[in-house]
Amino acid sequence: MSPQITPIADTAQDLELSERILSPDGTRVLNPRLDPFVADVDPAQLRSLLRDMIILRRIDAEGVALQRQGQLGLWAPCQGQEATQIGTARALAPADYVFPSYRETGVIYARGAKPGDYVRMWRGEEGAAYDPAELRIAPLQIIIGAQTLHAVGYALGIKHDGADEVAVTYFGDGATSQGDVNEAMIFAASYQAPVVFVCQNNHWAISEPVTVQSQYPIAGRAPGFGIPSLRVDGNDVLACMAAMRWALDHARTGNGPAYIEAVTYRMGPHTTADDPTRYRDTEELESWRQRDPITRLEAHLRAAGELTDDHVAETQAAADVVAKDMRAACLGMVTRPPLAVFDGVYAEPHTGLDRQRAEYAAYVSSFESEV
């Protein structure tokens, strides 16, 4: 007889089917499966995780503000997903390589991003958002799910080289409907690639609810490919760290790929070009506001007597400094002239490129004549 799998009926049930270490009110709960992976995490480390999440939320708010003020073409908010991103990213080893989508601001932050790295791509400036080699993060991927194939390819290289690394890829619940993600899982399982799949189930693929795309927990798909999986409360930073440590250990020790579904919630719009009020119920939004990942960890630390108002105030001040530096870096960027896009395409002169440059120059000059 096949095992009984509970379908997802609503967001409350969706969350209760996930493993956690901290309850929404901050109470520590016993979890024999996850506890061993965070047994070393002391109050100082918890305060550090809280600091990371507070700074990340401030970075995210500044990104939205810069876009609304016309300084960025777009921004993909991650408010509400801080625990998933910080918890998993802080478990990574320096040599591990990340393949993100476009919403992993917290992972970029945790890997040591500079102030301008958060906005360069969204402003449309030259180069990637950051130096991929320095942060060991591939460029942000806009094509839904494509980064999972890149991660598996890199992981196969790790395996052939015998390197002590793991490839990690992040994607949303909507991406799990893409063929690329499923093909990546097939390849990863077939060749036992050292790769970790992290699905940030934030409940909305733009305006499509996850309950339409998947009638059952997304983590349940991975075992069908031969990949072990964990489904955790994505608003519990400790559970996310524990799950990632489990997955990394599994992949790093030659056991092949692992899969994490972190059940969280996108509090803001899909991007700043989206209006979630057109498709999302305000009651659902408020119910998830009660599960805020920052409030949860703060409540836990305060109950244990390990957090003071002074510490929170200092962290908020530090977050403001990061946001200030990010804004200054954004406003200080110098945009290259339009025709510079043709520079460096070929090492030697190329007649086809010369023709394209001339055509584009005429197109650009046509706007000047209209002024």
Rank of each mutant, 00 (worst) to 15 (best):
I8S: 09
D10V: 01
D10Y: 02
D10C: 07
D14P: 01
V29N: 08
V29T: 11
L34F: 05
D35Y: 08
A39I: 03
S48H: 10
L50G: 04
L56Q: 02
L56I: 01
R57M: 03
R58S: 06
V64R: 10
Q69P: 00
G70P: 03
Q71S: 08
L72H: 07
A76P: 05
G80K: 04
T84W: 04
Q85M: 12
I86N: 02
A89L: 10
P94G: 06
V98A: 09
P100V: 14
D117I: 01
M121K: 12
R123I: 05
G124I: 10
D131I: 11
Q147M: 11
H150S: 08
Y154W: 14
A155H: 02
L156Q: 13
I158W: 12
A163L: 14
T169A: 05
G174C: 04
T176H: 02
M185N: 02
V195M: 01
V198W: 00
N202Q: 10
E208M: 15
R221N: 04
F225K: 00
F225N: 00
G226V: 05
N235G: 08
C240R: 06
A243K: 09
R245P: 01
W246K: 15
L248D: 11
D249M: 10
T253W: 04
N255L: 12
G256K: 08
D274A: 04
T277G: 09
T277D: 13
Q290F: 04
L297D: 01
L297G: 00
H300K: 09
R302C: 04
G305L: 12
E314W: 05
A317Y: 08
A319S: 06
A323G: 07
A323L: 09
K324D: 13
K324I: 03
L331W: 05
G332Q: 03
G332F: 03
M333C: 01
R336L: 11
A340M: 03
A347N: 06
A347P: 00
H350M: 02
G352N: 00
R355F: 09
S365Y: 00
E368A: 14
